[in-house]
Design a binder for these strands. Sequence first.
DNA 1: AGTGCAGTTGACTTT
DNA 2: TAAAGTCAACTGCAC
Length: 518
Amino acid sequence: MAVVSAQTPVLQVVWFKRDLRWLDHAPLVNAAASGPVLMLWIDEPQMWAQADASQRHRDFALGCVASLAAWVAEQGSHLCTPCGDAIDVLADLKAVFGSFVMHSFEETGNAWSYERDLVVASWCRANRIIWHESPCNGVVRRLSSRDRWSQHWANRMSHAPLGVPLALLWAAIPKNLSHWVCNRQTQPQTATGATEAHALLDSFLMVRGQNYRAEMSSPLTAADSCSRLSPHLAWGTISVRECVHAVWVRRTALLKQPAEQRPAGFLESIKSFESRLHWHCHFIQKLESEPEIEWRNVHRGFDGIRNEGDPCETEAQLLAAWCAGQTGYPFVDACMRSLNATGWINFRMRAMLMSFASYQLWLHWRQSGLHLARQFIDYEPGIHWSQCQMQSGVTGINTVRIYNPIKQGIDQDPHGSFVRQWVPELAYLTNETIHTPWLCEVLPPNYPMPVVDLKLATQAAKDAIYTQKAKPKVKADAQAVYEKHGSRNPSRDRPAKAIRPKTRAAPQTGSAQMSLLF
DNA sequence: AGTGCAGTTGACTTT
DNA sequence: TAAAGTCAACTGCAC
């Protein structure tokens, strides 16, 4: 066995994955403290070939990589961005450097990335390479119980975000690896990366977020009033902890102002934003604890209620209409077309789109979920698949929420301006008819009739889902899902209601624990 | 002035 | 992050 002298500087490889930043980056700090650092991002063709990946993701990620590369260049080194399988790249590194220590964040990703990390871990073991993985945001690896999860999260957030390493010694990149060096000329010139993330956070907390709470629900206002940090959190150009600490700083500043000078609603909006940062990790934790969430119902008692195989002809047509924004329901179509064009739509509309596909169209969430995954620039596997399952009613622990697209349209887009923008063939209709064009005397040309009857389809979906939910075995098994994944955070629960006088005794609905779910 | 009543509101339950 | 239905309290108004 070779004896490595204490003086031998061992190469420290920082493997960047979905953490394309230099601030609050534990692997970078740890690497810098241990030896000469080589910065690595691997362009993995297999990753981009997965069913949930899209060019849109790649464009965003490459922009962030370019921004990271620019920072590394300013620091006097180079970001290595080889293309290929991680194993092959690591083998090349070993061939050139002999040995190294690798640092990265724990990744909670799709099945492909999970498998890849298992292969990398086993390669590291076989090749005597030490791989240090740092916890990512509030997600806990090998979590034994959900009971104390909120405390875990609070503890993670309580420490100040890490700065740039005080001393950074760069490893020399040998000539035979010079083709790995990121050539920024070939990267897209999108303005993105950590700098943009911090600019968004700042403008949100100082200005745009004042009416976040009130304006996040409508697609007319959400685009400006929401933080728009989601793709940055997904690609790690900013950490959740950086956001949380910025929220605390802003809240302190607001509280210092005399109440009458304080911008109305800002504190409430910031509180709402902070709770969503908590949710962010809460949902990713589900995928971390149960990777099968990506393709299998969390509650197996809902297996088979929808077609899990290849879509039949009717289903394929419904799915295609939904994906293309051609369902005949103007608000659904406007939201989908807007999403397809921009890569983003607000949360409530995402829920409505998913609800429509899952209930009125009765499509399995995996099919519709893949379309959304590819469209969302901010696709975050843990959040996405948890949400898909929730909005399809197959978790067993969440309230069934079936959205009415006509009501949502009237509530969130009362003057039809969002519909007019994205469904121009309906632009000439009046406010009164724009959400129900099939009721017009003369049908709008070039716009489809509803692909399903809303009333009938909604009723059929309710019957099916509630029948399933009411089965004793399904009810009983929901408890196990709750134990594994349910939120124990009481602050997310509705406060206990005061007992109203003169009413009959309120019947107990569900267990005390179940009422803690959101 | 007090009563009857249709319509509204809000809290709560069911699906 | 739902929607629809139920029930009781409340409101405005006519007698």
